[in-house]
Write a protein that binds this DNA or RNA. Structure first.
Length: 462
DNA sequence: GGGTGATCATGA
DNA sequence: TCATGATCACCC
């Protein structure tokens, strides 16, 4: 189908809203398989032959078409299901490209996103929900560009084999092609005889999730851009850190007083501190950039002498039944949490110190795991994964608790690892993980080791 | 003091 | 009500 104008195209999309894949097919057979729904919507909804061409899908309008699946969460919310592939990376050609004429930018210039709800039970009943015209120049080009430059820079240095999804913030260099692809099928890279995995530029789910949320609720976010302009990721990071680190050395009580927050720990949640420090007033909206970048904010109580945290840092409940189905770290639930972190150390001399006048801000840092760190975390994850697959072994041990005993398990603990470990995280010891059949075990989750957090805080505190 | 399972507290 | 961030409290 060819549309003579953008408004004609838009009218066409509006008419597709609410249609199911089945109704588009109009009796034709539903062909299952990876990416099938996207292809059907392109073919039946827009009369587009399957193509791999470099030219935009709507060539005369310069608009690319992306079909984006949404999934229902456990809380019955609709959220982005997966990353959106933009284009394959050719390592050799990449280093000769400049952003302004790059293949990636070309593809990103203007995109028509068509959101559909993926129906897990009956994929052929998946439904088109909404659409969005995305324009790079009116969007987050500075951040996307710095991702692209970072990747290009690494490839130029002969480090294509060290690329990883999490080193970029929006436009990731993600693995493409089959998972089990053997090394001889990898690509050659410039300036290094070692081959590198095939990768593609793709938009991370944290970014497209924000696009989708803005379609649903155009006023749902506060944005740092409303406070200050920034030209790339580094500068955005600096704005965030500067505004928070203005408080370095000041007490929490000072902070609360200045911002008119009531005393008491409840008002000192990470989100409240960050919003106040950045200068947002009023309603507790989410901050757009934090969502886009997948930045998790953590306030970490630490010993003032050496920045050693009093506690390890927990992640959400990890159903063991789900992790035992996972074979690849970089496709695991846990991996998605490792996008990036803003740590705000709250220092005190002893763990017992409760007086907010004696708890003060340390130096906040933003951390994203490096390739090396990811490799180490992966090894520890694999060991945990293996223990779970083999079946966690529990032993009962007498203790003066409510029940008169505690349950020990053989999952790697904090002393066995350098980065991550697993520990209980339920409401109480009766809060059992129902997803796991190999043992009756309280809900568990991943934790960052204290030593890891200390190293992060220290390395950036020179 | 550090490691670990258990549990509190809070906000959506 | 429940998931989650945060912390407690027991043991070594």
């Amino acid at each position: 189908m060819i549309f003579s104008s953008k408004s004609k195209l838009e009218q066409h999309v509006i008419n597709l809203k609410g249609k199911t894949v089945n109704s588009l097919l109009g009796g034709k057979e539903f062909d299952k398989g990876k990416g099938a729904i996207g292809q059907i919507i392109e073919r039946e909804g827009f009369g587009m032959a399957n193509n791999n061409e470099a030219r935009p899908d709507f060539d005369n309008l310069g608009i690319e078409l992306k079909i984006l699946p949404l999934k229902r969460t456990a809380k019955n919310d609709l959220t982005v299901k997966e990353r959106t592939k933009i284009c394959s990376i050719n390592y050799v050609k990449l280093i000769d490209e400049h952003w302004d004429h790059s293949h990636a930018k070309n593809k990103l210039q203007e995109i028509l996103f068509v959101f559909y709800e993926y129906n897990k039970v009956d994929p052929s009943n998946s439904t088109i929900i909404d659409y969005l015209f995305f324009q790079l120049e009116n969007s987050d080009e500075p951040l996307i560009r710095s991702d692209w430059e970072r990747t290009r820079g690494l490839v130029e240095k002969g480090l294509a084999h060290e690329l990883s999804e999490s080193q970029n913030v929006i436009l990731a260099a993600s693995r493409s092609g089959a998972g089990g692809l053997s090394e001889d099928k990898w690509d050659v890279q410039p300036n290094n005889s070692q081959k590198a995995r095939k990768r593609a530029f793709s938009l991370k789910p944290s970014f497209t999730k924000v696009l989708w949320n803005e379609v649903r609720d155009p006023n749902g976010y506060d944005t740092i851009l409303s406070l200050q302009k920034y030209k790339d990721y580094k500068e955005l990071e600096n704005i965030i850190l500067e505004r928070i680190n203005k408080w370095q050395g000041k007490s929490l009580a000072d902070f609360a007083e200045y911002h008119g927050l009531e005393g008491g720990s409840s008002k000192n949640s990470s989100a409240t501190i960050v919003r106040a420090a950045l200068g947002f007033k009023g309603k507790q909206k989410k901050i757009k950039e934090f969502e886009q970048l997948g930045l998790t904010v953590k306030t970490t109580p630490c010993r003032s002498s050496d920045l050693y945290p009093f506690e390890a840092m927990s992640f959400p409940f990890q159903p063991l039944g789900e992790i035992q189905e996972e074979d690849r770290f970089d496709e695991s639930q846990f991996y998605t949490y490792l996008q990036g972190f803003l740590f705000i150390p709250l220092l005190r001399d002893s763990r017992e110190e409760k007086d907010l006048w004696n708890v003060y801000f340390g130096k906040a840092v933003i951390w994203r795991p490096t390739h090396k760190e990811l490799v180490s975390i992966q090894m520890e994850w694999e060991s945990i994964n293996q223990t779970i697959k083999e079946g966690v072994i529990l032993t009962r041990k007498p203790a003066r608790t409510r029940k008169g005993y505690i349950m020990l398990n053989n999952l790697p603990g904090e002393k066995d690892t350098n980065y991550i470990h697993m520990r209980p995280h339920g409401r109480d010891s009766d809060d059992i993980d129902e997803s796991y059949e190999k043992a009756t075990i309280t809900k568990q989750c991943f934790w960052f080791n204290k030593k890891l957090i200390q190293n992060i805080l220290k390395s950036k505190t020179v």
